[in-house]
Amino acid sequence: MSRIMPFAMTMLKNLVSPPVTKNYPESPAVYPERSRGHIEITVDECISCGLCVRSCPTGALEVDKTAGSWTINRFDCIACGYCVEKCPKKCLHMVPGYQEPMMEKSSASYQKSPEVMAAEAAKKAEAAKKAAAARAAREAKKKAEAEAAARAAREISEPAQEASQPAKQARQEVTD
């Protein structure tokens, strides 16, 4: 008997106990905190540096600096979490919950809010203005320096010219 049915007890127990599987999606799945479901972005904090794009092993990400958008092709993403680790602003998060099935491969794009864009544009304009001012100042300084140098050069060469004139004259006198 022990050779034929050692499994009978387990089978009987399994028969009378409720199933171990869940009636998903009626009873929702419980994910642990660390579960690598999908990537989410707090897009307003993103500085469009593109580090995540360069680190992604599958090339699932795209960043457009001028448009202020961050795009992920969720079907290419393997949820490795490398971009999350690399992001300098820590604005990417790996959150539980797997990608839902879709009829078509598509990508999700996240756009920075107009205020943030405006603020960034203002900041950029400010920076540009500052840079322009700095450039202008630098150029003015350069010009002034160049002028000063030229003046100095003239001042050095003019007396020399004056000095050479009598010599020339003298030479002329000799030849005459």
């Binding site: 642990p32 660390r34 949820a79 490795c80």
Partner: peptide, 29 residues
Amino acid sequence: ESLFYQCWRIRERILDMVELTTGGRLISS
């Protein structure tokens, strides 16, 4: 068949632990 399912049922326990600690059931990253 029932032995097959019993083995996989036991396996589920360790997979839960892998998911708890790494975030993925199989691919740990």
